[in-house]
Amino acid sequence: MPQPVISAVDLVKRYGDVAAVDGLSFEVAAGESFGLLGPNGAGKSTTMRMIGAVSTRTGGELSILGLDPDRNGPDIRSQLGVVPQADNLDTELRVRENLLVYGRYFGLPRKVVAERADELLAFAQLEDKGDAKVDALSGGMKRRLTIARGLINDPRILLLDEPTTGLDPQARHILWDRLFRLKEQGKTLVLTTHYMDEAEQLCDRLIVVDHGRIMAEGTPAELIRRYSSREVLELRFGSDRNEEVARALEGSGDRVEVLPDRILVYTADGEAELERIVDAGLHPRTSLVRRSSLEDVFLRLTGRSLIE
């Protein structure tokens, strides 16, 4: 295996007595698209800040592109692109100026920055917005501009902290398409998300994080295979009857999970399971058979839903 571009061993970050990150170990290979999946407060953003060499670790080992961020912060940062969770675009500058000025922060020559700025505006589908004010852009456009800005130094790794949080579905799909292109070009992507569909779309491999610890690691398909069944049967009997019916359902499928509003039956064949349940005299108000997702993996690992 070639040298990983990111390698963390027992990574810890404490704020006072609280361990925001509590012993994470993982590696990211060059060209890989790696995800950190977890609920709010799981320690994803803190981990991203340590990888981004803007936060010092409390313990453990961390190597980015073969360098230690405690010794080579600026060298590492010069090879990273960062897309933070909340946009921090420069609203006193125009769209294209944001790229020009950001490139200068890396000490890049004016001419190089100007050429890249035009290429990146095209990549972000903002060619005709170069002279617009940042505040006049839509949420999706701002995000694309932030990504373009993160690429101005031609980074080896792009860090994306919840890239599509707060965007409408259409804007999310445009963004996913852009990120997928970067992945095809061989850019290493590291992203955090609490959206399952996003992780499934973009990540080659991911870790599920909760309370600063790794709960599971693998490709999305592996995780689903390991921690869930092929299909999920969702049944609704009405909030007041769920508990009672759940007892009768015990032993159905591989596993039964009772949520406040519905019951999930994990099984290889949802239709067949539903037939058995109806034959047994239980009649759900609604039923739905769907494929298993990372949401189910998370529920299995932590006993909680991902978005509360």
Binding site: V54, R77, L80, P84, D90, Y102, Y105, F106, N153
Partner: peptide, 10 residues
């Protein structure tokens, strides 16, 4: 949050 962006560079 301008400085946050600046300090994420070199």
């Amino acid at each position: 949050r301008l400085y946050e962006g600046m300090l994420a560079t070199s």
